[in-house]
């Protein structure tokens, strides 16, 4: 088999909003950069997202939300990630997350927040540079 380690990414959409245009573009860009991308589909609960990340043993989780519910849902997701011991997973987020919420989101363990208008190449580069080497 291929000896090269593949980066596995979960792109997840928590919350009830259905704006998946950004999430899908990110998924596609990461795939085109050679990564294995799992997309959850819409309206995933924090439990479903973290359990999926665990079973798929992903290196990276990208969360996309535009409904404003990040202040409720992100802390829950990060809590579950810790509970399940997925400490080496890189978590980033995108969507509509006001500037003033960013410090709080970073405090709970989300490594980076990408606002609207972020070029996909920035994201690809970010993931490649920040993914932790597992095993």
């Amino acid at each position: 088999m291929n000896q090269e380690r593949k980066i596995r990414v979960l792109i997840a959409k928590p919350g009830l909003d259905s704006h998946d245009r950004g999430a899908k573009i990110v998924a596609r860009a990461l795939r085109d950069a050679g990564m294995e991308v799992i997309y959850t589909g819409l309206r995933q609960t924090p439990e479903q997202i973290v359990e999926t990340a665990l079973q798929e043993d992903v290196d990276v989780i990208g969360l996309s939300i535009l409904s404003g519910a990040h202040t409720t849902l992100f802390p829950r997701i990060m809590e579950l990630i810790k509970e399940k011991g997925l400490n080496d997973v890189l978590v980033f987020a995108g969507g509509i997350i006001p500037e003033e919420d960013v410090p709080e989101m970073k405090k709970i363990g989300i490594k980076e927040i990408f606002g609207p208008g972020t070029p996909t190449e920035t994201l690809v580069k970010y993931v490649k540079e920040n993914v932790k080497k597992k095993i």
């Binding site: 593949k6 998924a27 990461l30 795939r31 085109d32 950069a33 050679g34 990564m35 294995e36 991308v37 799992i38 997309y39 959850t40 589909g41 995933q44 479903q48 999926t52 798929e56």
Partner: peptide, 13 residues
Amino acid sequence: TGGAFLGDRIRMQ
């Protein structure tokens, strides 16, 4: 590219 979409589990989420 060597990349992939792993889309089957969506139906079983």
